[in-house]
Nucleic acid binder design. Structure first.
Lengths: 196, 196, 196, 196
DNA sequence: CATGAATGAGCGTTCATTCAT
DNA sequence: GATGAATGAACGCTCATTCAT
């Protein structure tokens, strides 16, 4: 664990995040990061086995932050766990677009094998939503499915927002709030929907 | 306006489309297109100012395809326009995942300046949804907002599906169907939601 | 087939040969060749698919030269075919150390897959020696084995000579002549040796 | 002079030797040695001026091993010293192919300045062969020359064998045995040959 | 005695692009 | 209208080596 005055590792990660959201996944190169951070490209390999490992570190970091936010939200709003969770999820995405991008937009091709950890973290987030959905009226047998639906509802609004695809006249935050509302309704309505 | 039988432009576009669909945005290179088309890389520059222009042409094509699908769907299901539209949208995304990716996932930096056309097409899609939502109970004043909400609901499920983020036990098509249902409900419930 | 005024291809090959013998296989790099030739590294890829292909081209060229020399030698000395062949082989090695090195010293690890052509050429050389050995008293059933023995005798002296391993007091050309003599004797003595 | 039980120098050499034998000269890197030994790369520089020095140490070791083998062989077969020597030489090469490679195939450029020691050892090997050749009928005045000829005969078969250049139908061990025989004959016949 | 941090040079290779012909 | 030749920039990565601590 290197601990020099300049402490490159976090700076590399930070720059990688910044590049990722500012210029897209295609602009994320070891040389670019190094140049921006002020070190040489090989120095990155002192802290990460390769570029994939760097990206994975970003993903892991993001999931830890997200889970912490979600758990804090659940704890702080015992009555409206689901709403609080959804709100926290959306807030996380807007506050950390870089993390969100790398966590949920990278396809499997860009994201070389390292799946176990990642899916476990992702699944933990989903389970959090699922448990909250039960408290909001969802049917236990469909908990995972309902949670996924809620998640995808939130993700849709966030994803379009982060890609700047939303019309100026529809304000982002409002859309997000709408999406949270739809997500929560989805949990409540889900039994009804199923019988249709 | 093609003149000779061997006019390269459409063949370049066709090959670019094929490569995009078959191997993704990352595999789109001028050299590969040229090789596959049977011309040389510089020839591409006779018809497209640069690679970005080629990609933009592809994106435009994608939007035209999507619009055509949506309009056909609307025409063929006069009673349930919104449902048909949502279904057609989801079908398009699943049938052309790489097209969808390049149309809706590329950030503004990746997608160099060329915004007018793209946003006009995107807006047309949105208006189609909006009009159908009116027929399904949405409030006229909020048509655009409601349409965006419906769109984002669809997009969320599609996006997660395309990024392989959905748990194996939740089957993709089912989630898509759920998302369509939620989207349609969103239009109907929107007045209610608003009053909450 | 590019045919510019500078005609890079042969110059690349020549420089590769030069580098190989002057500084060893480890110094043979595309960038080094390019620098020395006065072009850029990617230009090499206009003429060779990759570095391996370049090396293979060297090998092929070498075998063609060697075969031409051997066949000329055989034709010009009908009576003493074997001696003439051995002499020509040694002369080729001394005159083209770069070729000889890449043809017979590179191990299979350095020499990525492309074996068919190479082994066919090598075998042709061996067959030439074998046929000449028959004329010098070798037993037909052991032609290949005898040819290989003759070949290895020549190769040993050449290899040590090219690696500068021979004591100054033993003059290279003399050793080579001795080796040729031993090789020719090997053909004659081979039946005797076998009965031992 | 090793002092502590963990003295790195011999362990570095041992690992370097292991790597050389197991994966060849190209796989010898300071980092790999260090990783495998459990120290850091810079530690190697405490015991060796640079990588070349390490390789030279290895080469010296190889020559000592070879000499030990040859002397043991001579001692154990008083009657047929030359045959035993040749056999031992071939056995050493086949048992330590990568050692052999680095000892006898590296050109002078690859093998940076350090010639004195190396040539002395090499010469010692040659003298051993020379003395045995005398016992087998060689002429004293030509001892060195005859020894070199014997050596080159052995080396030729070994070199082709190590480079995988020998046809499958000619079995390696047989060729080696043939080469030994030719080498021994060379000593006996040498006076005759010379008069030709 | 040994390390952690960092470097400069280099590797093979691919890319979009230019330009004279 | 199209090409062959060539380029500059960049890519991920490995190397031997240095040096303050």
């Amino acid at each position: 664990m290197p601990r020099s005055a300049t402490d490159l590792k976090p700076r590399i990660l930070a720059e990688a995040r910044r590049l990722l959201v500012a210029e897209g996944h295609g602009a994320l190169s070891t040389r670019r990061i190094a140049r921006e951070v002020g070190c040489t490209a090989p120095s990155i390999y002192l802290y990460f086995a390769n570029k994939d490992a760097l990206v994975h570190a970003l993903v892991d970091e993001g999931f830890q932050l997200l889970r912490a936010d979600l758990e804090a939200a659940r704890a702080s709003a015992p009555g409206h766990a689901l709403e609080a969770l959804c709100k926290a999820y959306a807030d996380f995405a807007l506050a950390n677009p870089e993390f969100y991008e790398v966590m949920f937009h990278l396809g499997p091709a860009e994201m070389a094998r390292y799946p176990k950890e990642r899916y476990r973290e992702q699944r933990a987030v989903l389970d959090l939503i699922g448990r909250a959905a039960l408290g909001a009226g969802a049917v236990a047998e469909h908990a995972l499915r309902t949670a996924t639906l809620i998640w995808s509802s939130l993700h849709g609004a966030i994803s379009l927002h982060l890609a700047h695809r939303i019309d100026k006249s529809v304000r982002g935050p409002e859309l997000l709030a709408d999406a949270v509302r739809v997500a929560v309704q989805a949990a409540r309505l889900e039994p009804t929907l199923r019988t249709e």
